[in-house]
């Protein structure tokens, strides 16, 4: 197992390096002199020269990359052109909001997606199964911004049940401790605040959950259908096990193993959807921050958020692989 972990970690390094080159190149593909483009018309020569120096544009490209790499390794992602604050600091401020949102979405997706997949697989090609298949295809096909709008109109505007934007009511006094509002509400002994935070997270999380649960239920369904045909299920039937024990004890257990990988990758992919979702629901996370940075042409922030998303993706894939390898020795062998 230790060898497996080591080999898997080693494989990440070249990928990470190329990712850094790509993110570094983002500012360099801006047409014309980046400093002039970034500052826009009306910038003085002094400002341009200062920015060129700040971005190291006056040095050879290789040196620029080396100093960028050195900065990233020390957690320095540059300075936001808009706020003048270090990008790393700005990202840290907003990361809890995004993590809270995506973890709620992930948990909901597991609770909804797996049972739906099992339900479908145990009655294949019935009307219910076909209906659920179409529903899950709608889940992966619906644009995040359309679903978000429908939820806002229905539950926010017409029914008036849930707030449609932000993370917390501006009318309550609330001191965040950890930055995770639901947790903070509980920690500070005010369960009503935690509930309020939950009411804010429901709609944006639903948008992300729809995609995740759809991917998960589709995968669980097809993995279960394959597992049900395996010899060990036939053996279980032959020795007279109850159908429940066969489905949950044998088929589902084996189908869930690869589902971890699928869920991990879908989770990382979902972060792209988080940019749209956070923007629409005014959720103050890194997705919305990236959108603001694009409107402000704040390139260091665009670079920083892009890199952060890629890092989350890589770490998720790594963790998923390690869990998979830990649970399934065949995966460990394959990498040798």
């Amino acid at each position: 197992m230790i060898g497996f972990v080591f080999r898997r970690l080693l494989a990440v390094i070249p990928v990470l390096l190329i990712v850094l080159v790509l993110v570094f190149s983002l500012v360099r593909v801006v047409p014309g002199d980046p400093a002039v483009t970034l500052l826009g018309p009306g910038a003085s020569d002094v400002q341009i020269a200062a920015l060129r120096e700040q971005l190291n544009l006056d040095q050879p490209i290789v040196m620029q990359f080396v100093s960028y790499l050195g900065g990233v390794l020390q957690g320095d992602l540059g300075i936001s052109l808009k706020s003048g604050q270090p990008v790393t600091l700005e990202l840290m401020k907003r990361l809890p909001a995004t993590i809270e949102l995506s973890v709620v979405a992930l948990l909901a997706a597991i609770v909804i997606g797996i049972p739906l997949g099992v339900f479908s697989a145990t009655r294949p090609d019935t009307v219910l199964d076909q209906g659920l298949r179409i529903l899950s295809l709608v889940g992966v096909s619906v644009p995040a911004f359309l679903f978000a709008l429908v939820l806002q109109l229905t539950f926010g505007l017409w029914l008036g049940w849930l707030p449609i934007s932000g993370r917390m009511s501006p009318f309550v006094s609330f001191e965040p401790i950890t930055g995770y509002y639901i947790l903070d509400g509980l920690l500070s002994g005010q369960p009503s605040l935690a509930l309020l935070a939950v009411s804010y997270v429901i709609l944006p999380a639903s948008v992300l959950t729809a995609f995740l649960a759809a991917v998960l239920s589709r995968f669980v369904r097809s993995a279960m259908l394959e597992a049900i045909e395996e010899d060990y299920v036939r053996t279980a039937r032959a020795k007279g096990l109850a159908e429940r024990a066969i489905i949950y004890g044998h088929a589902l257990r084996n189908a869930l193993l690869p589902a971890i990988t699928v869920l991990g990758l879908a989770f990382a992919e979902m972060l792209g959807g988080a940019i749209l979702t956070e923007t629409i629901f005014a959720w103050p996370g890194i997705g919305r921050y990236m959108f603001e940075a694009i409107s402000n042409r704040d390139y260091p922030v665009i670079q920083g958020t892009t890199l952060l998303f890629a890092l989350i993706f890589i770490v998720t894939a790594l963790v998923v692989d390690l869990i998979h390898g830990w649970l399934d020795p065949r995966v460990r062998k394959r990498l040798k």
Binding site: V15, V19, L22, V23, L26, A268, E269, M270, L271, G272, G273, I275, L276, M290, I294, I302, Q303, T305, T306, F309, A310, F313, I314, A317
Partner: peptide, 12 residues
């Protein structure tokens, strides 16, 4: 390239 969420890379 596959290490970026597709939409994030497209946006960037």
């Amino acid at each position: 390239v596959l290490s970026f969420p597709a939409l994030v890379l497209a946006i960037a």
